[in-house]
Write a protein that binds this DNA or RNA. Structure first.
Lengths: 340, 340
DNA sequence: CTGTTAGCGCGTTCAC
DNA sequence: GTGAACGCGCTAACAG
């Protein structure tokens, strides 16, 4: 910075003002400083800036479990696209389902002075996020509601979507419907199980525990679980899967047990699942999916965070009030039919 | 920090030492400071630390064009998993093919004092990356070689993979093979086109420009381009696609023009493509893909960067030497057959 | 083994 | 309109 100032024949202070677009500078000197800066390829040190300004670093922490899952990468993209409009960058933290790693990650993000955190917590214990909030870092939850503290969040209509999809299977005459889902600790999984159960109950049926398999995280596990259900003495005639990993896994099971004639793949067992995904139209069997805009999920989370940061900046009386009320957005779902 | 020191009855300096695991502290005092820190939920301000230490911020910038493309999200995951082992976090920058955005992004990352940058540049102009390097920020290129400056890079065997896949189609008797690829400005696209051409030449054939369609970035565009090729008076009997977007798009075109009988989908036109992808096994038609470990691509890039950062730290005589030589890693490809 | 001094690069606050 | 001093939170370098 001194170099720039010297080259322009001014003090470091004036150079600083110019580079911050402070209007209180004579246009002539401003140009000289600008020229000097570009000549030297100089950009102010953002680290020093953050420290001096006492605010955050212009970074948003994004905490997810598995970036290889398209759901999370879409979310990440949605978040980044929105916060980038406000000059913020996204720091990704991939926890791989490890709760300790998640705890450490959040603490690290706070220590790094991120402006805010958007998280899809892996487990039910969210105390580390609560700690971040009480440490003054805004937290927005995505796809899971806050547990034990107040925070903005963006949810998918897990219950409704699962209920509607299951209801559609019932409408088609299915009475034994299997359920494949994530581990019980995952909020979306249990909500979607509730939706599944509600649809059965509405139809006068009860949930048969033998037909419910929770705990599959990868398609390969789901394939195994689905195969087990299909091998039951009284097998289900339809399957509902609580997320894209399970749907894809179940698809493979149906394909493999079906007759070799590809025209009748899946042996007539109907398949439905939560989450739309690429190539769902290409599987060659009828498929009912609960679709929603997963980019929008990320964008909405980014918007909530932006609002929170902005309100805080303009310290109006209303700012405080808004800061106190946690907002909640629910992204709607719709059913889509493929392969018909 | 002062608060912690006070609570432990020591000076800020000692507290600092304890929190940095400096061994030169009496175990007793150390415990007192640790206790005070946890009691207050204190973690040192990483921003101030970075400023004082003069090193980077412990962040790695990752510059990609489209995180929604599984290729890039896998890359991101690979990078993050490796750099995280060294306590580094990944900052994502999604440029959406916008060259100006990419330039600005890189400059911003440098101003933020990232420790290094891993980039998949969108265009041929890489001067902004060269500037980062001369600014002292290590850059590793992924999937494209450095152009006009020295930098480490990780490449896929684009030429060889494309040649082998095309050769396989030729072995099966195909003589008119269409090519679908990304815009010519994309390095991988042109390399893969070269591989395609080389295979044809080896077989004594020449490239028919009518059968080459470049410029498709999204599957929908590829579907259209493929449909056009198939509608030609003398249509190709096989298609080679230079990336997963084009393969998926071409698949839809084949499926839609094929006879309604799903057993014969694709009307006998053979399909081959670069990039393996999820559900490639589920498309119900024979498919030859050029596969490679895309996670490994990211991990290798992360490792190159880690090495670079580490060598620099241990300023041995050898460090300098290594710092000068740009390394290049080529990830091998293999052919996989699906749907047979 | 512990404390004091000084400064990383910048921006606010106050003089000129 | 411009410049000089001070400090953001932390830690090398040197006392003691």
């Amino acid at each position: 910075m001194r170099d720039v100032a010297e080259r322009a024949g001014v003090s470091a202070m004036t150079a600083s003002r110019v580079l911050r677009d402070d209007p209180q500078v004579l246009p002539a000197t401003r140009e000289r400083v600008r020229a000097a800066a570009t000549a030297l390829g100089y950009r102010p040190n953002e680290v020093a800036r953050s420290l001096r300004l006492g605010r955050g670093t212009g970074l948003v922490g994004l905490v997810v479990t598995n970036l290889a899952n398209p759901f999370y990468s879409r979310l990440a993209l949605g978040v980044d696209s929105v916060v980038a409009e406000h000059g913020l960058k996204t720091v990704i933290g991939n926890t791989g389902q490890d709760l300790d790693a998640e705890r450490e990650l959040v603490a690290d993000l706070v220590a790094r002075r991120v402006d805010g955190i958007i998280a899809v917590p892996a487990g039910a214990d969210q105390r580390h996020l609560a700690a971040a909030v009480s440490g003054g870092v805004p937290v927005v939850l995505a796809s899971r509601p806050p547990e034990g503290f107040a925070a903005d969040c963006v949810l998918v209509d897990d219950f409704g979507g699962a209920r509607d999809a299951t209801a559609r299977l019932l409408e088609r005459g299915h009475r034994r419907i299997g359920f494949l889902g994530s581990p019980p600790a995952v909020h979306t999984g249990t909500e979607r199980l509730r939706g599944y159960a509600a649809a059965l109950t509405s139809a006068g049926l009860t949930v048969d525990a033998c037909l419910v398999r929770q705990g599959q995280t990868e398609p390969s596990q789901a394939t195994r679980a689905a195969a087990e259900l299909l091998a039951l003495p009284d097998p289900p005639t339809a399957l509902f899967c609580s997320n894209n990993r399970n749907t894809i896994g179940a698809f493979r099971a149906l394909r493999d047990v079906g007759p070799k004639d590809v025209g009748l793949r899946g042996a007539g067992v109907a398949l439905a699942g939560f989450d739309d995904f690429e190539l769902a139209d290409a599987l060659g069997l009828p498929l009912t999916l609960v679709a929603y805009d997963s980019d929008e999920l990320g964008r909405a989370a980014g918007r909530l965070l932006n609002d929170r940061l902005h309100d805080r900046g303009s310290g109006a009386a209303g700012g405080r009030a808004t800061a106190g009320e946690a907002r909640q957005i629910v992204v709607p779902t719709s059913l889509v039919e493929y392969g018909t």
